[in-house]
């Protein structure tokens, strides 16, 4: 069963991954991704950002993305934790954890979940720059990354 959390608090990566597979001895691999706030973007320094979401829909979208991953690969567990609210450079934004019997499917599913999260989960970033606050534009490269998972 996917575990999905949207929260303002930080998370402990080690503790979360340990909890994901506690007592699950069929698991031979955990792949994880941690996203951090960078101090620069699109040619400007970034002193902080605020993440907005759509309560209800965001959680549902993340659950659906994890469910799709379970449908494509043989996985034991999936986890997505995404933070919202004000963050500063170096802060953790997102954790994706995928546990399975073998590394291949865990790696692939982890990348799939991030690619779909980037293009389908309702989150929006507003950066604080020396020129003022600015909403981050969606990137074509993210659409391309998500597009490669389309089934022929």
């Amino acid at each position: 069963m996917p575990v999905v959390r949207v929260q303002s608090e930080d998370f402990d990566v080690g503790r979360e991954l340990e909890a994901l597979t506690r007592g699950r001895h069929e698991v031979g691999a955990i792949a994880s991704f941690v996203g951090l706030v960078r101090d620069a973007n699109d040619g400007s320094s970034v002193s902080g950002m605020t993440l907005e979401h759509y309560p209800g829909m965001t959680e549902r979208a993340l659950e659906e993305i994890c469910a799709q991953a379970h449908g494509r690969w043989q996985l034991a567990e999936t986890l997505v934790i995404h933070r919202v609210g004000p963050l500063v450079p170096g802060d953790r934004i997102v954790l994706v954890g995928v546990a399975g019997a073998h590394r291949g499917e865990a790696f692939e599913a982890c990348e799939f979940i991030m690619d779909y999260l980037k293009t389908r989960a309702p989150f929006w970033k507003k950066e604080d720059t020396p020129e003022g606050g600015r909403w981050v534009d969606a990137r074509e490269s993210d659409d391309n990354a998500a597009g490669r998972w389309k089934k022929p």
Binding site: G35, L51, H53, Y54, M57, H82, I93, V94, M114, L117, K118, T119, R120, A121, P122, F123, W124, K125, W135, V136, D137, A138
Partner: peptide, 10 residues
């Protein structure tokens, strides 16, 4: 019905 810009999370 919700309207919003293209998403930018992660």
């Amino acid at each position: 019905v919700a309207f919003f810009p293209p998403v930018t999370g992660g």
